[in-house]
Deep mutational scan, measured.
Amino acid sequence: EDEVKKIVKRLIENGVDDEQIKEIVKRQGVDERIVDKVLKELK
């Protein structure tokens, strides 16, 4: 989960929008619920 957080944070800093972040992270095989949780925490 910490790995996911790092990735998502980097994507947000690069101006990637939420939908794209979800797609990218899902392609890495991460559960969507984890992605949603991380996005909420970082906003």
Rank of each mutant, 00 (worst) to 15 (best):
I24N: 03
E13S: 10
I7W: 15
K40V: 07
R27S: 13
G29I: 02
I7Q: 08
E1R: 07
I7M: 14
Q20H: 11
N14E: 15
K9R: 14
V30H: 13
V8I: 15
K9A: 12
R10E: 15
V4W: 07
D18E: 14
E1Y: 15
K40Y: 11
K26H: 07
I24W: 09
K26M: 15
R10I: 14
E1T: 09
I12M: 15
E1Q: 08
D36M: 12
V30K: 04
R33C: 05
Q20C: 02
N14V: 09
E1G: 05
L11R: 00
V30A: 07
D31H: 08
I12G: 02
L39F: 05
K22W: 07
G15M: 05
V8C: 04
L42A: 05
I24R: 05
R27A: 14
V38F: 07
V4H: 01
E19K: 11
Q20L: 13
N14A: 15
N14K: 14
K6P: 03
L11P: 00
V16S: 06
K40M: 13
V4K: 01
E19R: 09
V30S: 03
K43W: 07
R27L: 12
V8T: 02
V38D: 00
E19D: 13
V4I: 14
G15W: 03
K22N: 02
K43D: 06
R27G: 11
R10Q: 15
K40Q: 13
D36L: 13
L39E: 01
K9G: 06
K22E: 02
E13N: 09
G15S: 04
E13Q: 12
K9E: 09
I12F: 10
K5C: 05
I12Q: 12
V16A: 09
I24Y: 09
Q20G: 10
R10P: 03
K43L: 11
K5E: 05
G15T: 02
V25H: 02
R10K: 14
E32A: 12
K5S: 06
V38Q: 02
G15Q: 04
R33Q: 12
D31R: 04
E23Y: 08
R10V: 13
E3I: 11
V35F: 07
G15F: 04
K26C: 10
E23H: 09
V25D: 00
D17H: 10
D31F: 05
L42G: 02
G29D: 03
D18V: 15
E1C: 06
L42K: 02
D31K: 05
D36V: 12
E32Q: 09
K6I: 12
G29T: 02
E41L: 09
K37P: 01
D2A: 12
E32P: 14
E41A: 10
K26Q: 10
I24A: 04
V16G: 02
V4G: 01
K22T: 04
E19C: 04
N14S: 14
D31I: 05
K40C: 05
D18H: 11
V4S: 01
L42Y: 05
I34P: 00
